[in-house]
Design a protein around this nucleic acid. Structure first.
Lengths: 210, 210
DNA sequence: AACACCATCCCCCGAAAGGGTGATTTTATA
DNA sequence: TATAAAATCACCCTTTCGGGGGATGGTGTT
């Protein structure tokens, strides 16, 4: 049973080249080739391809929207983004849309085959340069950590506040008095530079304190 | 000028093997080899290695803490995590700690060299399996969307609530009455199945409503 | 026309939040 | 052991929340 593949690529030559190249192998079968993401949902629903190779820059319905449509139609279709080069902002959008791999158009045919095999086996092929960009977003998220100098008790109470506990509930949960909770929260608000509990909750979550 | 390398690996044989292997090449120079992360900060500060190869599982001071220490001492030291296999929970911790690459101990010497070259060139070498896990956390963050059926106005008010606005401030900001804000928030709390503003804020952020 | 939904506003009322000031005890650390 | 930091509690006071009603007008759908 061959791996079924859908291709979304606006460049006619490239589309035919990839399609023809893959069809030379009995283990791959191109079941669809389209100039953009229009109809991606319907195509995917009816064909259920194992893999979709999606160009990011396409007219009308671009690769990101196309990726969303495909994933909405069939979550198990593995999506390989195909792009001219490592593009920063769109990379992130692709990831959120549900892309499973990222391959450059400058890649060799063999690398394309590797990428296809990778995604069907549950991997996410991408260059180390792209991987670095992905990793950087992680660190970015976790750098702004606890520079607020909260004590252990304060973190605990803030955590309960985020969970929606009232002052009273926090007091009984932590086995301390109501007034103590108030004092702690006053200090917490001061340290976080916020003026109310809701703002503290937002900051706690966004800055990964909890 | 050779690439300077520090090795953190508790297994004596492996440590010596890697060290010896790398030192065979004039373009690489192992400047330190340690059994765990103790003293990583000091080592890094004085040696400023280009690359550190860090085993995740080490006694006393493990690879994650080691990674933090190294990055704290010198941000430009590129860190390659070295592990027996793709470990889920620690992977994420490593990324947050600042790891730049992820290589398996089963990798061939050539692959190790590739990884080293990758990180010094600004890439992040990792297997496609690991890359997939990283990507999955992205999607996880963006999937749980708005199924709460909030109206546009309600979303707007919830957004302001997250920003720390008081009811009064929301009212004047949105140009509506205080009582209207209250009504909206009552409805919002009902729709989100929460009982107070802080809980709503937490839910709004975690479920990416705002 | 009837209905659902949204946005707007009003009143009442008790509970909760939060800000100020001050004090004691425990714990960690220099 | 002195000292700082953290944790604990108390009292006062005002404002804000949050839940319960109920009401009106607009919009869009059936």
């Amino acid at each position: 049973m061959p791996v079924t593949i859908a291709i979304y690529e606006d460049n006619h030559n490239l589309r035919e080249t990839i399609s023809g190249f893959l069809n030379e192998y009995p283990e791959y079968q191109v079941v669809g080739a389209y100039v953009n993401g229009a109809g991606a949902f319907a195509n995917t629903t009816s064909l259920l391809p194992d893999v979709a190779i999606v160009d990011i820059d396409m007219p009308e319905v671009d690769g990101i929207e196309c990726t969303r449509q495909i994933k909405m139609a069939n979550l198990s279709t593995q999506i390989i983004m195909h792009t001219v080069f490592e593009d920063d902002n769109k990379l992130f959008e692709c990831l959120c849309a549900g892309a499973n791999g990222y391959i450059l158009k400058s890649a060799t045919p063999d690398q394309l085959l590797d990428a296809i095999n990778d995604v069907v086996k549950g991997g996410s092929p991408m260059s180390s340069v792209i991987a670095r960009k992905v990793l950087d977003t992680f660190k970015q998220q976790s750098t702004a950590t606890n520079a607020y100098n909260l004590s252990q008790r304060e973190k605990e109470i803030l955590d309960l506040l985020v969970k929606g506990y009232s002052y009273k509930m926090i007091a009984s949960h932590s086995g301390i008095g109501f007034e103590t909770v108030k004092t702690h929260l006053k200090n917490i608000y001061t340290k976080l530079h916020v003026t109310c509990g809701r703002e503290a909750v937002a900051k706690a979550i966004k800055d990964r304190i909890v």
